[in-house]
Each structure stands twice: as C-alpha cells, then as structure tokens.
Write a protein that binds this DNA or RNA. Sequence first.
DNA 1: GTAAAATCATAACATATGTTATACAAAAGA
DNA 2: TCTTTTGTATAACATATGTTATGATTTTAC
Lengths: 181, 181
Amino acid sequence: MARKETITKEVIFQAAFTILQEEGIDQVTARKLAAKASCSTQPIFRVYKNMEELTEELFEKACVFFQDYYAEFRRQTVTPFVNLGQAYIQFAGEHKKLFEFIFLSPDRFGKSMYDIINGTEGYISREIQAARSQGSKNPSDLFTKMWIFIHGAACMTLTGEYDLPESETMQLLKNCYHSFR
Amino acid sequence: MARKETITKEVIFQAAFTILQEEGIDQVTARKLAAKASCSTQPIFRVYKNMEELTEELFEKACVFFQDYYAEFRRQTVTPFVNLGQAYIQFAGEHKKLFEFIFLSPDRFGKSMYDIINGTEGYISREIQAARSQGSKNPSDLFTKMWIFIHGAACMTLTGEYDLPESETMQLLKNCYHSFR
DNA sequence: GTAAAATCATAACATATGTTATACAAAAGA
DNA sequence: TCTTTTGTATAACATATGTTATGATTTTAC
C-alpha cells in the first residue's frame, strides 16, 4: 500500500550523533546531517518534527552514553569519588564535544548535572554511601568539594589546560580526597 | 576635503562589547552590531577588516576587563589565592558571556588561561610568592590544585550549579587552601 | 495492471550572516 | 560654486540554515 522506508530513524539518529561527537551540536544541521546519512533533508523532517526535537533526543542519548562510559570504566582504587572523577575527566578529554554539550550547556533540558551523572544507577549516591561507610562525617559535603575539583579538571581538559596521565590523575584525586576529609 | 566621520571606531567597538556581554560572542553579528550602533553595516567594515578582526580586539578587551575587575576586587583575607579565586568565581557569575568567551573557548588567540589571569601585573606570580612566604613548600603545585578547584566552581557558576554568597565562598576557598597545603 | 498511499529527492521559501558594489551626502579646497 | 574625497546608507551577492511545497518513485491492496 505504501513505499518502503529506506532511511530509518536509526540511520538518521546515528549520523546525527556522529556529527555531534565530531563537530559539536552547532554543526548538527539539516543539510550536513542529510549528507552524512546520504539522503535529502526530507527524511529528517519525516522522522523528527524539527531540529529541536532531534537535539533533545541527542541530549538524552549523550547522557546515557556518558553513563555507559562510566559503567565500563573500572580502575583499581578504593577511594570514593576517584573512579567517578577519573571517568569524568577522561570523558571530557576523549569526548570533548559531548562533554561540552552535556555539562557546559546553560540549558540541559531540565536535567541537572547531578541527575545526569547519578543516572538510573545512582552513581553519585553510591559514592557518597561509600564515603560514609569509610567513616566520613559529612560525605555530601565531601562530594561537593570533590566534584568542584573534578569538574574543574574536566573543564580544563577541554581547553587543553589539564592533561595528565591516568595514574597521576588518580593520585591527584586520592590526595584531594584525603585533604578534604 | 572629505566628509566628517560620525560613526567612530570607539562607538562601534563599544556597541560590540555590549552585545558580547549581554548575548555572547556568537551574537556579535554585523547587522546586530549596526543596529546597536545605529548605523548601517558599512562603517563596521571601514574600521575593521572583517568580523574576525573585531572578535580579536574584543578578546583583548575582555581580558583587560577581567584584569581590571580583579584589580578592583579586594576582600579582607590573607590566605593566598582566595581573593583571586573569589574574583574569578564572582566574575563568572556576573559576566557569564565574557567568562565563557575568555576562559572556555578552545581558541584563545594563542593566550593561555594563566597568561590572561597573570596579566601585566603578574597576579598569579604574586599569589604564588605570597604562598611561598607563608611557608608553602611547593607553592606552584598548591596553586595548580587551588586553581583547578576555583575553575571548577567558576564553571559551575556558569550553569547555575554553584551559587554561594561571598562569605561562604571565601570560607570554602580558605578551607581548600588549608586542606591542600 | 491500476490506484492509493507513503517515502523520498528536488527545489523552493524564509531568514540570517559576512561582505561588497553602488550611489548618495557632506566637507573642504579650488 | 564646483570638484574632489571620504563617510555612510541602500541594496545586493554569496552562503548557510530551518522548513515546506511539489512531484516523482515505489509498494501493496484491489
């Protein structure tokens, strides 16, 4: 009864996500996306109401992408916040455009930074719990301080002002933790 | 022999700087600038070769603007880095678009963050010297740590994730300093 | 095989932007 | 006053972008 769809939503979305990763959200334009997906601009607007809707889906995906990144990230350390911090900093370095999009946009589609990092798995809550079980009196406050530091390192990574090997970052964060507790 | 100039470079530049402050560098466009300066786009290109040249001058001015901001910023504290950090964080909150332009752009026209903050007055060097005279063994390292923290707070200020009154920021930075030393 | 319906490409419309061509306006020397 | 020179406005050109109108293509029910 009708023509078969050849350019699926998945194809379009994947192309968009690739552009997002490589060039940033500003470069996810209808025509560039069409070129990446080897089609015209029409299929985009069949699948998405407008570019804004696509942007929102990209944001959701980027958040999950970060959470998956962290889930895969395992280093040998028992100090709370250190793993999470390392992942965050390394993510900023390896996925600059995603980091910018997720963590430096003024508008995060209503989600706070903490919501994003915490995710469905409660990654932050777990770390705070770990700090508590290690005898921290005020683990939330400790997290706040640690996170300001971690976010600072990540943002400096973006602009190339922070660039240390994993082992040194780990040591730095450990020191930081012990300084703050 | 020739018509008198009515739209001076100063008028154009000032209009551009106002747009930069209020809406960010992306919104400093030829037409918007012309409207702000109440003229056509022609005088802009008489005075500036192109928009890129204007952007570069805006950047230079923004750096000086920050340095002047810090020069004016005096709070009662003897702990090194605390005044500078407070100024930096408060600047991020009060001049978001300038902060973004200066400290979060990937391209800073060749200037490093440290160059900008240090300025002609050596603001960073002074603080490091102060830390040294207060008995710090490794004041450079101390500065690095403090600055990562300060930059983190400033970047979180941008997105509204950090928002403390001056007195609390001061206390936080003091604590931070004593934790790190 | 034809008609209906959905998919897609082409091309257009509308707006935004950097930049430039043209012509008008004004100042000053002749 | 006229001419020259320079500043300015108008309007254009070129490109980029979101979005939509049009029509061609393809699939499937009949």
